[in-house]
Design a binder for these strands. Structure first.
Length: 886
RNA sequence: GGGCGGCUAGCUCAGUUGGUCAGAGCGCCUGGUUUACACCCAGGAGGCCGGGGGUUCGAGCCCCUCGCCGCCCACCA
């Protein structure tokens, strides 16, 4: 006998261990099985499982379990990401907290060693947390972006792209993060709105003929100005082009140049040009061959290229000092307070500097071409489709990708420098040394590039590097391209696009055929969850409170696309209850001896209610299958919920009670077998979403003699024959259910005491309807709480009358009810029909409608009108009878 | 500045190609000793589907326009 309810706390770890021990997470070696594979978006080793991971992984687990049950060689490959900056940050913070020396004092090797030690201790936490969710990853294939195999893939890719001139080293402006002391890519920069000022400075002309006013939000950069630009057609300045101004404070003469970049409508129309500290100015500088004077060091402090007074000052201190100097010189022409956006490092949170340095770049523009084409041609499809627009937009305007980072934790760039600065790019130091030997004709000391690669560089290879590439491994042949990538829209640029580029370039195939973009989870108020707001929901706490199944079902049910998910515990509680509901349905079946019968053929069922539920089961199975096939997770969850609760429990089991309590032995046996059969199908259909409770029930209901073949996780997905549909049974049971529903409503409205069991009288019904009612008399008596079913020509005195599918049905309740109340109820019903009749009749009276609407729609309305009129007539007759009674 | 998404019952959301589409869950109200389940059962109230205009025999559903709300990209010297 089952307990009162499922106990996730004890069952989940036990069941997970069983799955893992059974080897079910690994793809079947059966060569005939079609492959279905997914690579997990590798969580950062620094991360704790947050609710976004929970959603993302739940959906993947639903897909992989579904595929597995359908007989695929299903591989969900797990792993983690070394997360360069994030990890380095964590360990640096830890060093600081322990009062230890900083990383620079520690030295590179010791620091990196320290991170590995940290990783060994706490880096696996998130993987353990995934297990708690029920994630059925193949842990035997778990990878880490910095492990040996992936690292050699990274080197191979780097060297190959370099040889193909798609990776190059170049000195140009990058976004420099002064906090982390590294270059970052465009994508790692976020615009933040801050308060600032707009200063207007006068630059005197060198020949003393006047001044030219420029405006800036960054006065300190004027120390590096090398020109003033005006628009070539700007009459105000035409005569000054070619002259020089003397840069205040610095004393350097700088030219006034004509360039389209200057906008005559902005400010004075003249703009100061600081090529080494502004992306636009850099381009102007290139066009006019201006000197590029960098006046900041890597910490964004003023360097030795500036006047002595300013050296060593932080950029903000320098800003203040520059403004004061202009004021003192009488050259400050105005200042306004403004709110403007300033680029910040997304991790450090400090303002980034455009900074002139040597970095490694990927020619993303070239790689993007095939990646764009692949999506255009549908080789990879985004789901929902509209994300393709986002993808295209970015890819078609892509800029070179800065891939070098001045960090220590990551893939060291496989480039070595000779004494003369010559670069040798090779997969190993030995190879580089060999080339260098050949080049120099003698052994020269080589120095490896200090930098590491952007973390996303290795992530870009993830779908194939994890499968063993560049070796043509069996896994690579079998599981690449992967089928579906499930990820968030926030990393379409960072990750999806780059995997597309690298995958196509190195394997000639797309890395995945489908990209499912999952929603973003917010709190119940719709706010983005963040630690600072204190509104984060810890998925593990939710698992503790409600069980993993409840959380999974909630996330699945709410994963409707194109929308943020607002998560509330109330919702999770509701789906926990759903699990309990199923549990109790199984409990009921168990109590009634509904066990799986070997050789039972649902197709041969004779009882109409059994033929009906068989068809409903088929419909539910189809709905769930179709939904999961198209990543319509919410539809799958909805179909399961409705079928299990509103069809199987609310109706089938209630009607079945009448049979099970009856004395028709054949019917009882068939119903027991059918109830069990449906459950078996249901457990399978629900398993991908609620794996724990279904697996537990699967095991616990495996009564002696039941045809069970091992664990549910490995069971075959239901594939039910079309013949299970039975329109006749559907119509029959549909009529009974409609009558009971209407009867209940009438009872409640008239406040008929629940204990009252009035006879149910068929006043006017077709012979078929009468037959149906008598056949299901026990079920109707049980569900509608009525006495015997009588069939007679006239409504008994003092009765409640209702109309269902053209049958007039009465509850003989003389003495129980208030005649006036019944009269009022009938009047309301009649009025309702009248409104419907009026609307439909008007429609049918419209010649345009008759002429233009399709025939079936017209016919449908005719029928509807006829039915409504019939129902109204019947109710009017009942009213008249009531009136006759006085 | 460019783009995307949203605005449907008190709340959170479904509503496929325009023709019972006005729905679900939660909340609320009423009733319930119906032997699977109170994490339950039965019933009920509640919405000019953001505003306006248009196309159509017919529009939450298509077009135009306006209004809010959210996000992304670019940029403001």
């Amino acid at each position: 006998m089952l307990d009162k309810a499922f106990d996730p706390k004890t069952a989940e770890p036990r069941l997970y261990a069983e799955w893992e021990a059974s080897g079910a997470f690994a793809p079947t070696p059966d060569p005939a099985a079609p492959a279905f594979s997914m690579a997990i978006p590798p969580p950062n080793i620094t991360g704790a499982l947050h609710i976004g991971h929970a959603l993302n992984c739940t959906l993947q687990d639903v897909l992989i379990r579904f595929a597995r049950m359908r007989g695929a060689a299903a591989l969900w490959l797990p792993g983690t990401d070394h997360a360069g900056i994030a990890t380095q940050m964590v360990v640096e913070r830890q060093l600081a907290a322990e009062g230890n020396i900083g990383r620079r004092d520690l030295g590179r090797d010791a620091f990196v060693e320290r991170i590995w030690a940290w990783k060994a201790r706490s880096g696996g936490m998130i993987v353990e947390q995934l297990r708690r969710l029920g994630a059925s990853c193949d842990w035997s294939r778990e990878r880490f972006t910095l492990d040996e195999g992936l690292s050699s893939a990274v080197r191979k890719v780097f060297v190959t792209l370099h040889r193909q001139k798609l990776i190059y080293r170049d000195k140009r402006l990058v976004n420099w993060d002064p906090h982390f002391q590294t270059a970052i890519s465009d994508l790692e920069v976020e615009q933040r709105e801050v308060d600032g000022c707009y200063w207007h400075f006068a630059y005197p002309l060198e020949d003393g003929s006047g001044e030219i006013v420029v405006a800036t939000t960054r006065p300190e950069t004027m120390l590096g100005d090398t020109a003033v630009a005006v628009h070539p057609k700007d009459e105000r300045y035409k005569h000054q082009v070619g002259k020089c101004v003397r840069l205040p404070i610095v004393g350097r003469p700088i030219p006034i140049v004509a360039d389209d970049y200057a906008d005559p409508d902005k400010g004075s129309g003249a703009v100061k040009i600081t090529p080494a500290h502004d992306f636009n100015d850099f381009k102007v500088g290139q066009r006019h061959r201006l000197p590029m004077i960098s006046i900041l060091d890597t910490f964004a402090r003023v360097n030795d290229n500036a006047p002595a007074d300013y050296r060593g000052l932080d950029r903000l201190a320098a800003r203040k000092k520059v403004v004061e100097a202009f004021e003192a010189l009488g050259l400050l022409r105005g200042v306004e307070n403004i709110r403007h956006v300033v680029p910040h490092g997304d991790r450090s949170g400090v303002a980034v500097e455009p900074y002139l340095t040597d970095q490694w770049w990927v020619d993303a523009g070239t790689l993007a071409g095939p990646a764009i084409a692949a999506v255009e041609q549908g080789a990879t499809v985004f789901e929902p489709r509209n994300w393709e627009k986002t993808y295209f937009e970015w890819m078609r305007n892509i800029e070179p990708w800065c891939i070098s980072r001045q960090l220590w934790w990551g893939h060291r760039i496989p480039a070595w420098y000779g004494p003369d600065g010559r670069i040798f790019v090779a997969e190993t130091e030995a190879a580089a040394t060999a080339v260098a030997l050949e080049h120099y004709g003698r052994a020269e000391p080589l120095r490896q590039d200090e930098d590491v690669l952007d973390t996303w560089f290795s992530s870009a290879l993830w779908p194939f590097s994890t499968l063993g590439w560049p070796d043509q491994t069996d896994d690579l042949k079998r599981f690449y391209p992967t089928d579906t990538l499930v990820t968030g829209f926030d990393i379409i640029f960072f990750w999806v696009a780059r995997m597309m580029m690298m995958g196509l370039h190195f394997t000639g195939q797309v890395p995945f055929r489908r990209v499912f973009i999952n929603a973003l989870i917010r709190d119940a108020e719709g706010a983005k969850m963040s630690k600072s707001k204190g509104n984060v929901m810890d998925p593990l706490a939710l698992v503790d409170a409600y069980g993993a199944d409840a959380l999974r079902f909630t996330l699945t049910a709410m994963s409707g696309q194109a929308r943020d998910i607002k998560l509330s515990t109330q919702r999770i509680e509701g789906y926990r209850n759903f699990g309990t509901k199923l549990w109790n349905a199984v409990r009921f079946c168990e109590m009634n001896g509904c066990i799986t019968v070997a050789g039972f053929d649902p197709g041969a069922a004779r009882e109409s209610v059994n033929r009906w539920i068989r068809g409903e089961t088929l419909k539910a199975a189809r709905a769930v299958t179709a939904a999961l096939d198209t990543c319509a997770f919410d539809d799958a969850a909805g179909a399961l919920y409705r079928f299990i609760w509103n069809v199987y429990c609310d109706w089938y089991l209630e009607v079945a009670k009448a049979i099970l309590n009856g004395d028709d032995e054949a019917a009882r046996a068939e119903t027991r077998a059918m109830a069990a059969w449906v459950l078996q199908v249901v457990l399978k259909l629900l398993h991908p979403v609620m794996p724990f409770v279904t697996e537990d029930l699967w095991a616990k209901t495996a009564l002696p003699g039941a045809p069970r073949d091992g664990l549910l996780i490995a069971a075959a997905w239901p594939d039910l024959p079309e013949g299970y549909l039975d329109p006749a049974a559907e119509a029959e049971i549909g009529f009974v259910l409609a009558a009971v529903t209407e009867g209940r409503s009438v009872r409640a409205e008239l406040n008929l005491p629940p204990s009252a069991r009035p006879p149910l009288v068929l006043v006017d019904a077709s012979p078929v309807q009468r037959e149906i009612f008598h056949a299901h008399a026990a079920a109707i008596a049980h569900t509608l709480r009525v006495g015997e079913v009588q069939s007679q020509g006239a409504a008994p005195e003092g009765s409640l009358t209702f109309v269902v599918e053209g049958a007039t049905i009465a509850l003989s309740v003389k003495g129980f009810i208030d005649v006036a109340a019944e009269r009022a109820r009938l009047a309301k019903e009649i009025a309702g029909h009248a409104a419907d009749i009026d609307r439909t009749a008007r429609k049918l009276a419209n010649p345009d409608f008759i002429a233009r609407a399709p025939e079936d729609v017209v016919e449908e309305n005719r029928q509807r009108l006829a039915e409504a009129e019939d129902a109204r007539a019947r109710l009017e007759a009942a009213r008249d009878r009531l009136a006759a009674l006085g």
